[in-house]
């Protein structure tokens, strides 16, 4: 583009845009070496589904034989998640102790079949909470969610070892607000749910076809460093995130 020439009028429709981009593509692929990374395919006519160069590289952060629980625990702790270990049959007292420490009185329980926190676990926890004089809540309305919940207990669909990430997905049993609105989140994670890293998680070929409306990769508490770079947690999402491995 010359400094004096006027830029061409923008394409008015999506089809016009595609036509302009297609017209530009061969020229771009031929004459302009800097636009293309080394090894890039030079033509645009081939299918978008064809493999990209570099697809074969194994760039995973966590080797398959690594102790994923240990890697996850270290990474989650580093980003501000408190990780607890519990025996399979003895997780209730651990969760109760966490909630006690948080000072939570009204606790949202969100059971989901695809997680380690199913209906049976929710019932067991609800009974224990009632016995301790606490108030378990299921599917609270908006006002209760915003003002009347001190903590949420839920499961996850997966966890990522490298980054200490908890993965939640929305669905008929799982709401967007659960891991977002209450000031504290307690997540039950089965160690078998821990995958190595993002690359391993997204390599699952079933993922694309089964994506729910929202998947959230939660890495530590809500945070900001907007004011002079000082780390502040609990801005809009939960300031306290606990993970109980059981």
């Amino acid at each position: 583009m010359n400094a004096d020439s006027r830029p061409p009028a923008p394409p008015a429709t999506f089809d016009a845009l595609l036509a302009r981009l297609r017209a530009a593509a061969p020229r771009a692929a031929g004459g302009d070496a800097r636009g293309a990374a080394p090894g890039e395919r030079a033509v645009s006519a081939d299918s978008p589904d064809a493999p990209l160069p570099g697809d074969h590289l194994d760039l995973r952060a966590v080797p398959p034989d690594a102790d994923r629980v240990a890697v996850f625990t270290a990474a989650a702790t580093a980003v501000g998640v408190t990780v607890h270990r519990a025996a399979r049959q003895a997780w209730v007292p651990v969760v109760l102790a966490v909630l006690e420490k948080l000072g939570a009185r009204r606790i949202l329980l969100e059971a989901a079949d695809h997680t380690a926190f199913r209906a049976a676990e929710a019932e067991a926890l609800a009974a224990a909470l009632r016995a301790a004089g606490r108030e378990p809540l299921v599917r609270p309305d908006d006002d209760t969610l915003f003002d009347g919940v001190d903590a949420a207990v839920a499961g996850v669909t997966a966890a990522l070892a490298e980054t200490g990430t908890l993965v939640t997905a929305t669905g008929p049993q799982t709401a967007r607000g659960t891991s977002l609105v209450p000031p504290a989140l307690v997540a039950l994670v089965d160690p078998a749910q821990i995958v190595g890293d993002l690359l391993e998680y997204f390599a699952d070929p079933r993922l694309g076809a089964t994506l729910p409306a929202n998947v959230n990769l939660i890495t530590g508490p809500s945070k900001t460093a907007d004011i002079e770079g000082v780390l502040v947690t609990g801005v809009h999402g939960p300031g306290h995130v606990h993970c109980v491995l059981c």
């Binding site: 669905g171 729910p212 945070k223």
Partner: peptide, 17 residues
């Protein structure tokens, strides 16, 4: 290593959400 929230949005609310 990763921001606190990485959100994947695929379509609007589903009927049973």
């Amino acid at each position: 290593a990763l921001g606190a929230y990485t959100t994947l949005i695929t379509g609007p609310k589903r009927p049973d959400d």
